[in-house]
Nucleic acid binder design. Structure first.
Lengths: 396, 396
DNA sequence: CCTGCTTTGTCCTGTCAGTGGAAAAAGTTG
DNA sequence: CAACTTTTTCCACTGACAGGACAAAGCAGG
């Protein structure tokens, strides 16, 4: 099937498409209230959008006291693909043009197996979604990778945890395979965009989104836009020193935040505690599974295990300390905590909050919510869909 | 004398004014090369600007191989006032419309004497500059204060080191007194704008500007724009924890960067070292002056005093450690070090560089210059002039 | 069902910003 | 002085857009 080739011809059309994306089906009259255009001009632009097929008529709206207005909506057949490649698993989802998730699958996979193997997996997952009747094809795809990206080209650069990906033309290759436009970004940035679009960060202009998974990263949103930095490595807070002369880190330094708290560090600490006989709960789980992960620690903590709680608390303290510094520096309006370890829940959040509220100045923390992400694993794929839709819904 | 009342009527005119401000006198033809407008349209807008008096004819340009072009320039009588209120001194300068400093005076004054006393001083300094024939009046003024500012209103909020200023309507009051538009900002932000306009940060989109004076602050520039944060306290890095369980700080916490290194901390450490007999050089200076400041430490270091050098080095290490974190987080294209302690020169810079290059990831530091500010004490006043000119040279 | 009011959609004209070509004006080069 | 450039002005043409007039559609109340 031929997919969308049309693009908005001007800024007004782009604006209208985004209004329809973010606000769902809408009447012409309501659109007129939200956009600064005369009725005549609006009618012309809507007419042109209808001609392109990007937008379709959608029945009559409820009356607002007079003649009823005709609703319009984004073409219901439009489909975006959102891909979130994590360190140890892959999420793929299909959305409609309003970025609602229609189907979502998750598969474990080690990113270190390299781009070729991962791509194969991603494509087969996309094919599976297509086969299930959710999409006949994709009008665009967004993809997130766990490392820095040279954004304009869509190419990973010097990614520490994914050797073999350096310089791999992700955007080009995926675009080729799927036959549609593709945008690539860091997975943390996509999570931030997801929470901004559909999660807790709606209507916040400046915020931080801290993702604690296998590693730790931070999405930075300034004035509604993601800040990627000069080389695309902004938000790489995992290697900020949290403990002077602390544990050795894979990066060669000592005391990096990531070495002291992250999915990987937490798992290692848990195994150690189990082996030293500090926690019967963890030891039992280690016995059963042969390994431990953040999920086990969360379960043990939920069961009241003191060691597990301590691990979480200490990690939260470390993380909170680093975040406190970032809050002083950046003065965000919101801090979102997300990623694999959100399962640790309130214990973690409380530890982080304590540190931030204690260490940052009152002016910066006075009205600063620190909350868990609302979308969990869908944040990344929604962010990915948002990324490509922002691209497509902008003047050609 | 009546001053400039005219403002650019549209974005084109604003654009032209900024080109003339940043590039100096220019021919119509050259302007045409820099702006995306047809010759006819350009001629119309220039004509209108000439009518308003904001811009005047300025003789003939050199030939580029054909008919010579008529030069135009910003009205030579335009004057901006730049005010930089530091913790312990005040800088006031007059600039022309191209933001060249025509006159600059500096007076010691403790900001804690309160807004009324400080204002009196500022106005008398401005009057002095006017009396010396540099200006008949001011077309706009920018002012920087050493604390957070609610930017749109131009009002300091909860400034830790300047009690009595909280909520004082700086913008309103100064505008009233001077009879011209006024904009207020944090002094560190103005320093960043100054270095961006006329210093080392020309042509860099994302950079950090660390000012080490009585306290420590950091100007953050994202995409050419200053980031002020949700409550105007962005860049307040003086109270980031640099030393766990370190020295007590005025803010109530322990180990704040500012408590370990800043103009004030350095002076205190120097006195202590002198009294403990660790440094003959510093002791002698303490004897002579009755007090020590960063300048004394710089002089002692220049004379080869080991203790002074150690103080600087250790401070640089602490600062570098914090900056390393910020570099990982923000991924700037440049880091500028400025403020009173730039006199400490290369020793300080070397220590900072060592820490940053060691602790941040290669991708972020690979092509990251860390340099001293170029403008010294004029950075702030130039930034102040730039602030108000940006405001005035924007569509009404 | 009919009347008056409101909202929505369409049509049309006037205005204004802006482009691009033509030609005049002013210089340069040989 | 002739041929060629560059700059500037002039002018007609285009397209974007606003806003008014009017028709269409719906509501409320008699």
């Amino acid at each position: 099937m031929r997919r969308m080739t049309a693009r908005p011809a001007n800024a007004h059309q782009a604006r209208l498409l985004r209004l329809l994306r973010d606000g769902g089906p809408n009447s012409r009259a309501q659109l007129g209230d939200q956009i600064d255009l005369s009725r005549s001009k609006l009618a012309v632009e809507v007419e042109r959008l209808l001609e392109t097929g990007l937008v379709v008529a959608d029945g009559l709206a409820a009356s607002r006291g007079g003649r009823r207005s005709h609703n319009i909506r984004l073409a219901p057949a439009l489909r975006f693909l959102g891909v979130d490649i994590g360190a140890t698993s892959i999420d793929v989802a299909v959305t409609n043009a309003e970025l609602e998730v229609l189907g979502h699958i998750n598969q474990p996979m080690d990113v270190r197996e390299g781009p070729v193997a991962v791509f194969e997996q991603v494509l087969s997952m996309a094919a599976k979604l297509r086969a299930s009747g959710l999409a006949e094809g994709f009008d665009g795809a967004g993809i997130g990778v766990p490392g820095p990206v040279r954004f304009p080209e869509g190419v990973p650069v010097a990614p520490p945890i994914m050797p073999g990906w350096d310089g791999f033309p992700v955007r080009e290759a995926l675009s080729q395979e799927l036959g549609c436009p593709v945008m690539v970004d860091n997975d943390v940035n996509l999570m931030a965009m997801g929470e901004q679009h559909a999660g807790v960060a709606r209507s916040v202009g400046d915020f931080l989104c801290v993702k604690i998974g296998t590693g730790i990263g931070c999405g930075i949103v300034v004035g509604g836009e993601v800040h990627r930095g000069t080389t695309g490595s902004a938000g790489d807070i995992g290697h900020i020193q949290a403990v002077p002369d602390g544990r050795p880190c894979a990066c060669g330094n000592r005391g990096c935040l990531e070495a002291h708290f992250s999915g990987a560090a937490l798992a290692r600490d848990a195994v150690e505690a189990a082996q030293q006989g500090l926690s019967a709960e963890l030891a039992a789980r280690l016995e059963t599974n042969g390994a431990l992960s953040a999920v086990d620690v969360a379960a043990a903590a939920a069961a009241g295990d003191a060691t597990a709680l301590d691990l979480i608390r200490e990690g939260g303290n470390r993380t909170g300390q680093v975040i406190a510094g970032l809050v002083s520096f950046f003065n965000p309006g919101l801090v979102v905590i997300g990623g694999g370890v959100t399962g640790l829940g309130h214990t973690l959040l409380a530890a982080i909050r304590t540190q931030v509220y204690r260490q940052s100045l009152p002016l910066a923390t006075g009205n600063l919510p620190i909350v868990l992400g609302e979308l969990g694993p869908t944040a990344g794929v929604i962010g990915a869909a948002r990324l490509i839709s922002d691209h497509l819904f902008s003047p050609a």
